[in-house]
Amino acid sequence: MEKPALATVAAASAVTTAGDFVELPATVSHGPLRIEYRWVNETSLDAPIAVFLHEGLGSVAMWRDWPQVLCERLGMRGLVYSRPGYGLSTPRAHDMKWPVDFMTAQARDILPALLDALNVEMQERKRMWVIGHSDGGSIALLYAALYPEALAGAVVIAPHVFVEDISVESIAQTKRLYETTNLRDKLARYHADVDSAFYGWNDIWLNPAFRQWTIATELASIRQPLLAVQAHDDNYGTMAQIDTIAARVPHARLVKLDAGGHSPHRDAPEKLNEAIEAFVLGSVGR
């Protein structure tokens, strides 16, 4: 595991203090990748792992201190990483478009390969929780469905199970803001190649072919504890998202927040942390 070249750090400007990096070999679904990651409570080797899966424009740096705060409450060791195309991980080539099933590829291929590269053994994975936000929540659901024996449970925050008009309308508005305001400069603090990160996410969500995307059928394979959280004032999705989860996964627990927007870990952290702590520690204690 190597540190980034000085040129890479310089190109990233003030994105973040460079963390660690791991190389993933090429497979049939992707070329060789360099993944930025950071451990939280790294020395707590006996503690269960919580893997944090970021939103569509997220990264290691954009989580800020929330993974640390939550891991302290849960007594866990945390793994935070930037997906390919985000943060300081391998950027998306500007002529490359994410496929409609890009989140399935992240759950099926990238996350297991990362865990392998970091020597996370199967016994550790069986005690592992995946905690995902927005697109990361969808990836967490897919991982839980694809590998039901390779985790202890999942927490998903403002996940997407299918495409709603409100999501597309808000994402189109975000594109207008990115191209006409200082939003690009703000996001550049979190990504070495901000245009790669932004348009990879924006282009697929605004692709007409993506309107038919859904993972509702896959949810029925989830067997481990599952907590789904949604705020009523989320402008990227409605309660129909987590209600669909409950219909497909009867044992899922839903938490509906009065307020918290699309990012409750930022806008309503105490209520969110309380809900996650009660659910996770209650599930572990059963």
Rank of each mutant, 00 (worst) to 15 (best):
229 V>T: 08
62 M>Y: 15
33 L>T: 06
38 R>K: 12
133 H>C: 03
163 V>C: 07
231 A>S: 14
169 E>V: 09
127 R>C: 06
46 D>E: 15
132 G>V: 06
64 R>Y: 06
50 A>D: 01
218 E>C: 09
278 A>K: 15
170 S>M: 14
60 V>W: 02
31 G>I: 00
159 P>K: 00
157 I>R: 11
181 T>G: 04
279 F>W: 14
84 P>S: 05
272 L>F: 06
77 R>G: 03
70 L>S: 02
61 A>Q: 15
70 L>T: 04
172 A>T: 09
255 V>C: 03
277 E>Q: 12
31 G>N: 09
171 I>Q: 10
250 P>K: 00
64 R>W: 12
198 F>W: 07
280 V>E: 08
130 V>H: 12
243 D>T: 03
229 V>K: 10
8 T>A: 10
131 I>D: 07
283 S>D: 13
134 S>H: 07
206 L>G: 00
176 R>T: 14
151 L>W: 09
189 R>Y: 15
188 A>L: 04
24 L>Y: 08
196 S>M: 04
75 G>D: 09
21 F>W: 02
19 G>S: 01
12 A>G: 12
117 A>H: 05
32 P>S: 05
146 L>R: 11
26 A>P: 01
188 A>Y: 06
81 Y>K: 03
152 A>G: 14
129 W>Y: 11
277 E>D: 10
217 T>S: 13
212 Q>R: 05
125 R>D: 04
260 G>S: 01
171 I>D: 08
196 S>Q: 08
124 E>F: 02
171 I>K: 07
257 L>V: 02
7 A>D: 12
187 L>V: 05
73 R>P: 06
164 E>N: 10
193 D>F: 09
47 A>L: 07
139 I>A: 11
250 P>R: 04
56 G>Y: 11
98 W>G: 06
186 K>D: 11
181 T>M: 00
15 V>W: 07
259 A>Q: 12
182 N>Q: 14
5 A>V: 05
253 R>P: 07
135 D>C: 07
232 H>Y: 08
36 E>Y: 05
218 E>F: 10
194 V>F: 03
159 P>E: 09
132 G>R: 10
114 L>K: 03
248 R>V: 06
263 S>H: 01
89 S>G: 06
8 T>H: 09
52 F>G: 01
175 K>H: 03
283 S>L: 00
210 F>W: 11
138 S>A: 15
238 T>K: 05
114 L>R: 06
261 G>C: 00
182 N>R: 13
264 P>W: 02
85 G>E: 05
158 A>Y: 08
216 A>N: 08
157 I>F: 08
235 N>E: 14
150 A>L: 15
198 F>A: 01
57 L>F: 14
69 V>G: 02
107 A>W: 02
276 I>H: 06
27 T>G: 08
191 H>P: 01
140 A>N: 13
61 A>E: 15
42 E>Q: 11
16 T>K: 04
176 R>F: 09
284 V>K: 14
116 D>G: 06
84 P>D: 00
87 G>Q: 06
58 G>F: 04
29 S>E: 12
57 L>M: 13
69 V>K: 13
32 P>T: 00
19 G>K: 03
43 T>K: 13
53 L>A: 05
116 D>I: 02
110 I>L: 13
